[in-house]
């Protein structure tokens, strides 16, 4: 339990630093903005209470916002994603129940399961984020375009990270 907590705090800090130090400076064209910090929400243990996921999402988003000077935007998008997470987990379960204590990792659940899980949540996060950023529906095709490209980029990073960090 304590170990899980320590690991998660470490991952949290690592991802925030990675996001604000490196990834925020990557802007290919004006379309590709990878937001890999959502990996933290993706990897939270499955038996984390739902309310805690929301609170953690809010705090994580707000910290990213503080660095990017966009108070509220990342927070709202990440909270939205935290809200969807339990629903998605329920919808794509391939067993009757998840074992308690496991995290949604590629090694436990397989590549395609993890890909599905990542794509759905990252897409919803990015769609929400870019919509709030644009704040109108006139240029919705632009929002959609940015969402699709950035989702692919972020998901690629997320899946690669699984092979790099948790190599066994």
């Amino acid at each position: 339990m304590i170990k899980t907590l320590q690991q998660n705090i470490f991952l949290f800090i690592l991802l925030v630093l990675l996001q604000v130090g490196v990834l925020n400076n990557i802007q290919l064209g004006s379309y590709l903005n990878p937001y890999m910090y959502v990996l933290f929400i993706l990897l939270l243990p499955i038996n984390t209470p739902n309310w805690l996921v929301l609170v953690v999402s809010f705090i994580l988003g707000l910290i990213i916002d503080m660095f990017a000077d966009t108070i509220g935007m990342h927070a709202s998008a990440t909270v939205f994603m935290g809200f969807l997470r339990p629903l998605v987990l329920q919808a794509i379960t391939n067993r009757d129940n998840y074992d308690s204590g496991t995290s949604p990792r590629i090694h436990y659940f397989g590549f395609f399961w993890f890909l599905k899980y990542t794509l759905v949540l990252v897409f919803s996060h990015h769609l929400f984020l870019f919509t709030v950023e644009m704040f109108n529906f006139h240029s919705f095709h632009l929002v959609l375009w940015r969402t699709v490209l950035s989702t692919l980029f972020t998901s690629l990073l997320v899946i690669l990270s699984q092979y790099v960090i948790y190599r066994k």
């Binding site: 309310w51 108070i71 509220g72 709202s76 909270v79 339990p86």
Partner: peptide
Amino acid sequence: YHFIILFILIEFLSIALVIQYNDYQ
């Protein structure tokens, strides 16, 4: 419904922050 209620509360708070602090929005 504590999960949905909490979600709506936090989401409202976030959107309020967006509108409060960002000039464009």
